[in-house]
Design a protein around this nucleic acid. Structure first.
Length: 576
RNA sequence: CGGGAUGUGGCGCAGCUUGGUAGCGCACUUGACUGGGGGUCAAGGGGCCGGAGGUUCAAAUCCUCUCAUCCCGACCA
């Protein structure tokens, strides 16, 4: 491709509304443009990366035995009513009516459509197992789209759905997808973790997330430094061992804590560490219960664990007026003593004595508080979020390390949730009707490209790994008016094209500085500079974008050199 | 959905407090020079100041409403 004839509108300055680096660089490098909040156009340069991502996914899905299909964006309401999600999915489901006033929605995921296809076409266990996938545009009307392609409303996703006769079959399908996913992200050159995750709204019995490690990630994950265990902090199990509650040694004492509300403030004010405080969170549930949850001062409540423990649809922090009604004080001073609601506590609290709690009155706390003596806890459970330093639940010696991650893939074992709701069954070998056991498997294609940029950039621009780079080689023709330079660059360009090396020839009539700045910004892995200075010696310069290392080759040596580097950059080994 | 902020040529911004002919840098067009890290000079083109309503002799500027975008939050009691 000739730059002079290409469409690659780069920006010198960072658009004001782009916050994260991948968003900034994708805009600046002419990969994408915003159309509306969370809705983007892919310009040609960005589309090339997206297509490469899709192709890697396609190859690995095919290798794992999945079969590609394509389902529509517009879904009729009936299917969604049948699964119950027309009501349940909430506002993220964008609904609309056709000209006949029939209800439709934009598909945010396609369990309903695929299950409908399968139930109408598959009736025998002999047609199983089956795994169908598509790479398709999804629409989810997110509460808060943000960070460019990272959380868009319209986005390209690969979604796969497996159908098996029984649990064992489904587990095997799941394991194949797990491995395919690891292969995909390895091939992209990403630093990622596959972690255990909560299956959340989609439902199902177990699930894994694939997390690209990056500071800007929206998720917290922990991984063991001694074994393979890794999990989303929402899910990460904690071990508590045998906890003995120490004997109280202090009297309960009221202390004035004027204007001190947060744990940090109170701890600072009383010259204690947050570990010596117990915080009391007032929550309300979908069952309309209000209850209190106690946690050690430096710990975080894990809403998902709490929701699962209580077996309710949701749990929220109580509204200000509810807190006032229950505790008799504004937020900031809640404590367990004298509370009339049910009190739960994180297991860690069981091992604490003589701690500080809120006093249920403005500017008042209690010190020397003790469970059993001063108040009763109805249940202890694992309710907190895992953090760095916590002991691993799977091995003896390991400790958690914590990371931020971008969720680029998520796989679920669904079980029979959808097949039952939608009556998708087959006959087994005994002629008995069985509901299909399903799994579903998603990858955000655009998000993965964005995550790759988050992980691979420097102050001058992005440095996409070879497998995702829009072009493999950039040939920079320094002065197109110099015949020798022009001819040399053209010759090199033609040689590379003949070898099917994806090459961008910067033949623009621009000054060198502009070309170099753009080259760094768009981050093509290999850059060849053809300039009069080196050409006098018959040489051209190679610069590796990632390392910045430059080296000189004769015109004839350059082509095989590039060929080898491209091949190395694309090489991959599959995990077994 | 709650809180905060911002909307002024393609991009980045100033002007708004204290109303009085819409500005700067980059980009763009033409010409000349220049040619290894966003170059120089000269001459140009482009803006219903997000939208609607109001106050006023006069509104980018003040008031009301509205739309859009971004950030934070929905957890630290």
């Amino acid at each position: 491709m000739r730059y002079s004839q290409y469409f690659l509108p780069t920006l010198k300055e960072t658009p004001a509304d782009a916050e994260v680096i991948s968003h900034q660089l994708m805009l600046r490098s002419g990969m994408i443009r915003k159309v509306a909040a969370g809705i983007y156009s892919y310009l040609p340069f960005g589309l090339r990366s997206l297509r490469k991502m899709e192709q890697i996914i396609r190859e690995e899905m095919d290798r794992a035995g999945a079969i590609e299909c394509l389902m529509p964006m517009a879904n009729p309401a009936e299917l969604w009513q049948e699964s119950g999600r027309w009501e349940k999915y909430g506002k993220e489901l964008l609904r609309f009516k056709d000209r006949k006033s029939a209800d439709f929605c934009m598909g945010p995921t396609h369990e309903e459509v695929i299950t409908d296809i399968i139930r109408n076409t598959v009736s025998s266990y002999r047609q199983l197992p089956l795994n169908l996938y598509q790479i398709q545009t999804k629409f989810r009307d997110e509460i808060r789209p943000r960070f460019g392609l990272m959380r868009g409303r319209e986005f390209v996703m690969k979604d796969a759905y497996s159908f098996d006769l029984d649990d064992d079959g489904a587990d095997s399908s799941y394991a194949k997808m797990y491995q395919a996913y690891r292969n995909i992200f390895n091939r992209c050159g990403l630093n990622f973790r596959s972690v255990e995750a909560d299956s959340g709204a989609i439902g199902g019995s177990f699930s894994h997330e694939f997390m690209v490690l990056a500071e800007s990630g929206e998720d917290g994950i922990v991984s063991c430094n001694g074994c393979e265990y890794a999990a989303n902090v929402e899910k990460a199990e904690l071990i508590y061992g045998d906890i003995v509650t120490p004997t109280a040694t202090l009297e309960l004492q009221k202390v004035d804590t004027p204007e001190q509300k947060s744990i940090e403030e109170v701890a600072e004010f009383l010259q204690l560490s947050p570990q010596q405080l117990v915080k009391t969170l007032i929550v309300q549930t979908s069952d309309d219960e209000v209850l209190a949850v106690l946690l050690r001062g430096d710990h975080e409540l894990n809403m998902i664990k709490l929701t699962n423990l209580l077996d309710v649809d949701w749990v929220l922090m109580a509204e200000e007026d509810v807190v006032k009604r229950v505790t008799g004080a504004p937020t900031g001073f809640a404590g367990p003593i004298g509370l009339k609601v049910r009190i739960l506590a994180d297991a860690e609290v069981q091992g604490m004595a003589d701690f500080v709690v809120g006093g249920n009155a403005v500017d008042v706390h209690f010190s020397g508080a003790n469970q059993g003596r001063d108040f009763e806890i109805s249940q202890f459970a694992d309710l907190r979020q895992a953090m760095a330093g916590d002991p691993c639940p799977r091995c003896d010696s390991g400790k958690f390390e914590s990371w931020r991650g971008i969720e680029v893939g998520h796989i679920f074992k669904l079980g029979i949730k959808y097949s039952e709701a939608m009556n998708a069954t087959v006959l087994d070998a005994q002629g008995k009707t069985q509901p299909l056991v399903m799994g579903c498997y998603g990858i955000g294609a655009g998000r993965t490209v964005a995550a790759a940029i988050e992980q691979n950039h420097d102050e001058n621009g992005m440095i996409l790994p070879m497998p995702l780079a829009p072009f493999q080689v950039l040939v920079t023709m320094l002065n197109p008016k110099d015949d020798q330079v022009r001819e040399a660059a053209e010759k090199l360009y033609q040689q590379l094209l003949a070898l099917n090396i994806e090459t961008l020839l910067d033949d623009r009539d621009e000054r060198p500085g502009i070309k170099f700045k753009d080259a760094d910004l768009i981050g093509i892995p290999l850059r060849v500079t053809v300039g009069a200075r080196n050409l006098k010696e018959g040489n051209v310069e190679l610069k590796i974008r990632k390392s910045g290392v430059t080296s000189m080759f004769s015109l004839d040596e350059m082509t095989p050199q590039l060929q080898q580097l491209v091949a190395e950059g694309l090489a991959f080994e599959l995990e077994k």
